[in-house]
């Protein structure tokens, strides 16, 4: 942030976002050069959305999930998706208890505040949809009995680029359930150098302490819907939506659900930066990760919608 104060801070008496700032800073120390990705991930959690991280293996997808769990103090379970993973492996299974003579439900790994679904596109569509249903409904129904998932409930799914062999790409309708999709990318030269020189990331991970309590996180999550949105800002959001619908080269524009997601993410981003209203810059900041997986080029074999093409999109929509 520049030395000159550009944005008025939020009114006193509201839950402070300071701990989240600290959490972002702590996570960024482990994930070198990835502060923006960490910040977006935190905003995603703040907006009560799920996160999809998509990139080639080895750039720190899993580490990001683990770091987030650690600094936010969330109970975390990891599910490694494989082609033989079954839905019951995720949601749990009822086992006959010989002592009581009744079936007892053994909760699966999905019963955690933060679920890391690693390489989600390696599993079969049936298993994928078990997870995605849990994400959407925040409950699991097994043997006719619904069990609520813990709160907060947050899924970080990682996936390898879909053109890799042995993967089941998530269908578009399922992709929509993730509020954001992040691409980590390779670290820059300086960060890579520090990475190579420094300690093992796993050791650092073990040292991380939670910077925020679950209750504080919940309180902040409840602040998000109340972040102010002016008519002028809605004009801007609508201009972006309209642009995606009219633009050449896109199969279809942003859906109304996509528009709502964009606004929710922008509100969380504004809150994370200590503001009680959304400014166009917030929309621009979250736009690549919110619309990247919701827009599809007409040319299926052409380049994907990445942050560069979203940046071009932003350039073409004047702020009303």
């Amino acid at each position: 942030m520049s030395a000159i104060r550009l944005n008025p801070s939020r009114a006193p008496g509201k839950p402070s976002v300071g701990p989240l700032e600290q959490a972002v800073a702590a996570a960024s120390e482990v994930l070198l050069g990835k502060e923006r990705a960490v910040r977006l991930a935190v905003a995603c959690i703040l907006a009560d959305g799920h996160l999809l991280i998509e990139d080639v293996p080895g750039v720190g997808k899993t580490t990001l999930a683990q770091v987030l769990g650690a600094v936010l103090g969330l109970s975390m379970r990891r599910i490694q998706f494989t082609s033989d993973l079954l839905p019951a492996d995720i949601v749990g299974v009822s086992i006959y208890d010989r002592d009581t003579g009744a079936f007892r439900f053994n909760p699966g790994p999905v019963f955690a505040q933060l679920v890391l679904a690693d390489e989600v596109n390696r599993a079969t569509p049936k298993t994928q949809s078990a997870l995605l249903e849990a994400m959407e409904e925040r409950q699991v129904t097994q043997d006719g009995e619904s069990r609520r998932l813990p709160e907060p409930f947050f899924v970080i799914a990682t996936q390898n680029p879909t053109h890799q062999i042995g993967t089941f790409p998530l269908p578009e309708s399922q992709l929509d359930r993730f509020l954001m999709r992040l691409e980590l990318g390779y670290p820059d030269r300086a960060a890579e150098r520090a990475l190579l020189r420094g300690r093992d990331r796993r050791e650092l991970l073990a040292d991380l302490a939670p910077r925020v309590t679950v209750d504080a996180l919940r309180a902040l999550q409840q602040e998000v819907p109340g972040v102010g949105v002016s008519e002028a800002l809605l004009d801007y959001v609508q201009a972006i939506i309209e642009h995606t619908r009219n633009a050449v080269g896109l199969r279809e524009g942003l859906s109304p659900r996509g528009g709502l997601a964009l606004l929710r993410a922008a509100k969380a981003w504004a809150l994370l930066h200590g503001r009680d209203h959304v400014v166009p810059e917030d929309v621009q900041a979250v736009l690549p990760s919110v619309v990247g997986h919701r827009l599809h080029p007409i040319d299926e074999h052409g380049p994907r919608i990445d942050s560069a093409s979203v940046a071009r999109l932003i350039e073409r929509v004047p702020i009303p």
Binding site: I4, R5, L6, N7, P8, G228, S230, D276, H277, P280
Partner: peptide, 19 residues
């Protein structure tokens, strides 16, 4: 920097904020 920042702050508050 300073005068533009002040004007921008007032503008953002009016147009996007509620003060």
């Amino acid at each position: 920097a300073e005068p533009v920042a002040a004007a921008t702050r007032a503008y953002v508050a009016l147009r996007y904020g509620f003060g």
